[in-house]
Amino acid sequence: MSTSLWALRAGDQGRITGFGDALAESYRIRLLELGFHPGETVSCLQAPAFGAPKVFRVANTVFSLDDEVATHINVETDLA
């Protein structure tokens, strides 16, 4: 199923498929530099309550992203 990174719950995994058009170019570049590449598997480690930024792991690094960014990252959750 294709959703946004922000829709993942703690423990979920997804493969990045691309970025939404609304995401500023500079943000997209930064995300790529940090390792959020299309094709990469991202897992959601923590999804704290009250809409706080969620914690994601990509490669061996852990980042927290807030909804303003994470809703524009598209992921595929069927990792067959």
């Binding site: 500023a24 995300l31 914690v55 980042f63 927290s64 807030d66 303003e68």
Partner: peptide, 11 residues
Amino acid sequence: HYTDLPFVLEM
């Protein structure tokens, strides 16, 4: 306001 840095914080 909108072209600012995103909240992407390395943990």
